[in-house]
Design a protein around this nucleic acid. Structure first.
Lengths: 246, 246
DNA sequence: ATGTCCACGTGAAGCC
DNA sequence: GGCTTCACGTGGACAT
């Protein structure tokens, strides 16, 4: 992930190692390369000194017999130590980044990293589902009925199983006037579907008058189009019919 | 996150500790409570035995002088060790869960946990932006002006900058009757917004009559509610007003 | 007092 | 060989 930039080995690039720090590195290790020497000397001379202020005591080097391998081991060890510390710091940053992205109700009571990661998992799942249904909703709004599962193509214009219901669309001025005469009862005919269809087609309903005849309804709707060039009366008529009978 | 269930202390509940295991616990620690004894004995007798098969050597117990504190320390130590191991395992599971949720192109070349978390962060950001624009797109289609950026909370009920426009909502039978009288010109008043709001509130518009007076409009809308218990006339009136003036 | 959580240093395994 | 990553055990901080 991140590599060791030159001139930065064995010391820290950031002034504060960690906001926690444990006071492990009181004064050496931040002054330059000399600190390495002192650390190495300290470690290599850690035979049985039980001073408890230098707490880390990795013991001598019982690898296969090689000269100066003790010092080299110590060098690699503290190099490794620093690298590992950087890695931990990066992980910590990622934890906070992840947590900062979560909505507040997902991060409310939880405080541990485990909880935050669990909530991140939940949130991603929730988000994926959200996107999924938004997409399907959008496709449904755009009335692209998948083009593959429209088995209603037979009834799109036939209108035989539909009780007498006529829809006419006429272009007037900068919009349309729609006349719907139906013999349905009130509870069966859904004016909302027509209105929703018009809204989706960017047709702004100006007036809507419903007159109640004894055996049915007559709806007269005036709507103005935001873009007359996109207005196709025949297509609109077909869609409205489909919206009514569906 | 997870607590220690009774009868499970000091041993593992799962048969495989970790799919990696490092062969740290070859035969004891999985046979029951006796292993604790042996471990303690081993640790307490780790004075200067340099057999390298028992690699962990936390040294004796240089706390303030107390009898049997060595054994108690060792007990707590290996208890702590097991708990910590469980915590790590849970973290590891969360890592894999998180990674499994990412799309393949986000996880393709990366293999470290750092990379996966970084990609999780990116993915969440990408997802949030996606949802955002899907929502705005939907609202644009529905002609709902975004509801989240309506800084019109100050004008929600004041209606001072609004030319005389009154909205009344009355509950009748299984729905509502809405009267909107406005002095706006035709092009300024958007009936569609009212209709869209009603549609979103699951209110099924039955009739909508608009009468054109010389200086304004009177709209009478009848709508039936799918769920009367969720119908709040005052709230609906407020929302309709907001929909009109926004 | 007890439990939870985090950072540390370290050894080892994997990958160039 | 070096370099990176991971799991480990441990101590200490914090909360309960």
């Amino acid at each position: 992930m991140f590599t060791l930039q030159p001139g930065d080995e064995l010391v820290f690039g950031t002034p504060s190692i960690s906001e926690h720090d444990h006071k492990l590195f009181p004064d050496n290790l931040i002054t330059g390369h000399a600190c390495i020497e002192t650390n190495i000397i300290n470690f290599s001379s850690s035979s049985s000194n039980n001073n408890n202020e230098q707490r880390d005591l990795p013991r001598f080097r019982p690898r296969q017999g090689q000269s100066r391998s003790r010092d080299e081991y110590n060098i690699r060890r503290i190099l490794h130590r620093n690298i590992e510390r950087r890695r931990r710091q990066e992980m910590s940053n990622l934890y906070t980044s992840l947590r900062s992205l979560l909505p507040l109700d997902h991060v409310k009571g939880r405080r541990s990293v485990c909880d935050h990661m669990q909530e991140a998992v939940n949130y991603i799942q929730h988000m994926q589902k959200n996107v999924q249904e938004l997409r399907s909703h959008r496709d449904k709004l755009k009335k692209l009925p998948n083009l593959s599962s429209t088995k209603a193509a037979a009834v799109s214009n036939g209108g035989d199983n539909l009780p007498n219901c006529s829809v006419t669309v006429e272009v007037i001025r900068d919009g349309v006037e729609i006349l719907i005469s139906s013999s349905m009862k009130n509870s069966e005919f859904r004016l909302s579907r027509v209105l929703a269809e018009l809204l989706e087609r960017q047709l702004n309903v100006v007036t809507c008058v419903s007159t109640n005849a004894k055996e049915g309804f007559l709806h007269k709707i005036q709507a103005e189009a935001s873009d007359m060039t996109k207005l196709d009366p025949l297509l609109l008529q077909e869609r409205l019919t489909k919206a009514i009978i569906s």
